[in-house]
């Protein structure tokens, strides 16, 4: 199901917790699985559940709670734009609107070329940098004015 390399990474995460609490590693395990597969299919979650010896539904609870986990296939780049209050007051909604217009898609949609997916995100803990957005869960982009968004799109389109 998962590559030996991913399993090795998951095993490493498991060692961080007491031996009888393997399920504490569920969030990292799901992230590692998603890095490999791109998204979390039911079979992937089931596999992680078996691997960590926990009920499948408990894995599903975690995967549906956090919106960094993709339960549907996504494009090559996933933008998650924060629309919580501090960002919204500093132009978060404008950033989202600009992205929607540029990409021609709404939230939770993917461009037809499969390159970009747009998601609405919750607070990323960087309100001072508002408006913020995340690229593929890992790259944080701050002060995202329309110009900076254009630059980002240009960079990623290459």
């Amino acid at each position: 199901m998962l590559s030996a390399e991913s399993l090795k990474k998951i095993d490493h995460e498991v060692t961080k917790y007491p031996a009888d609490q393997k399920q504490s590693a569920v969030m990292s395990a799901l992230a590692i699985a998603q890095d490999e597969k791109g998204w979390l299919a039911n079979e992937t979650m089931d596999f992680v559940a078996h691997y960590l010896g926990m009920p499948a539904i408990a894995v599903y609870e975690v995967a549906t709670f956090y919106n960094m986990y993709n339960l549907q296939p996504v494009g090559r780049y996933k933008f998650t734009v924060c629309t919580n209050l501090p960002c919204a007051l500093s132009g978060g909604n404008d950033a989202a609107a600009h992205l929607k217009q540029k990409l021609g898609i709404g939230f939770n949609q993917t461009t037809t070329d499969g390159k970009f997916t747009l998601k609405e995100g919750e607070c990323m803990g960087a309100c001072g940098d508002a408006p913020v957005l995340l690229v593929n869960n890992k790259r944080m982009c701050s002060f995202m004015s329309c110009e900076k968004i254009d630059q980002l799109l240009e960079e990623l389109s290459k």
């Binding site: 009920p55 539904i57 549906t64």
Partner: peptide, 20 residues
């Protein structure tokens, strides 16, 4: 002794369901 139901999603989207 067996977790068959769980809470998926959060906030307004939270719901009780079984896995698949």
């Amino acid at each position: 002794g067996v977790m068959e139901l769980g809470v998926a999603g959060r906030g307004e989207h939270a719901e009780i369901l079984t896995f698949v």
